[in-house]
Design a protein around this nucleic acid. Sequence first.
DNA 1: GAACTACATTTTAAGCTTAAAATGTTTTCC
DNA 2: GGAAAACATTTTAAGCTTAAAATGTAGTTC
Lengths: 163, 163
Amino acid sequence: MASNTKSVALDHETRLHEDDHHSLKLWLRLLTCSSLIETELRGALRENFNTTLPRFDFLAQLERVPDGLTMGALSQRMMVSGGNVSGIATQLVKEGLVDRSPVPDNRRTFIVKLTPKGKRTFRKMAEEHEGWVIGMLGHLELDEVEQLMTLLARVKQGALAED
Amino acid sequence: MASNTKSVALDHETRLHEDDHHSLKLWLRLLTCSSLIETELRGALRENFNTTLPRFDFLAQLERVPDGLTMGALSQRMMVSGGNVSGIATQLVKEGLVDRSPVPDNRRTFIVKLTPKGKRTFRKMAEEHEGWVIGMLGHLELDEVEQLMTLLARVKQGALAED
DNA sequence: GAACTACATTTTAAGCTTAAAATGTTTTCC
DNA sequence: GGAAAACATTTTAAGCTTAAAATGTAGTTC
């Protein structure tokens, strides 16, 4: 017996001091959780589909909006800089998964949308992707998930207010 | 009246469908929260101290351990690849904030530790850093933080089990 | 309508990050 | 003790990411 079930993982939280503020403890636990999940998803996407998380994210946002999105809207939704989206778009267009075309009324803007190939490719990936996420979070009870969603909404609120 | 308090933020969650699995919804809310906080902290570190989050993280881990850490231990705690830590170490050594020296008994390993200058520099940054984090998370009640810590421990557990 | 300002996007330069290969060291195992 | 495996770190190449500058377009204001 005596298998030590206490978590002794080495992660962001290791840097905490006993007397650090609870906000800091919370932040580092949050960061540890998202780092773990992100690393797992990135690896799975690479091994199974030879692609990356930002590319997947890009396609995921577009799949939700059949009429497409402007570069700026996509940048907001992906929570990354405009320049970043620009580069990823260029690649996905070259790979034939995405179409980027000008709009008639405003020559500054471009609309990106999935091509049929992009839709097919994304759907295959999305199915497995969901499975990986459930593999990591599916052990939580439904009421635990609900509590988390509510509490994280409060976190989001506070983080957004800080701008 | 009638100010719409409902969040209409554009973020990772925008890509969700109504009928997506609750695990996926939870993951995207978690990711949105850490993206928001990370972006805020990155910007504040740059504006106030002309430094970056990974550099700060590196120093923070070392400050916790006066005797220093091996490159490998640091890599685990920062949750990034060894090569990544290697590059950051080279910079911080050049800036005089960190000392990287061989250990006598094992010529493969290196121990990194803060220099006095590194300690001073870090402490100045850490104080403000804590303030920024409290600015974003301090509005949560103590019992909300406790619930989050418990629930996120469950998330962490599930994400770790997936290896 | 000319000048100014704001906007949408792309480009650029610098730094972060990873996976994989390379290097050098230590341990294991016959 | 020599070969093979494991280990710790660094290097490399490719891709991600950002802030800031550049480009081109639209709106505003006098």
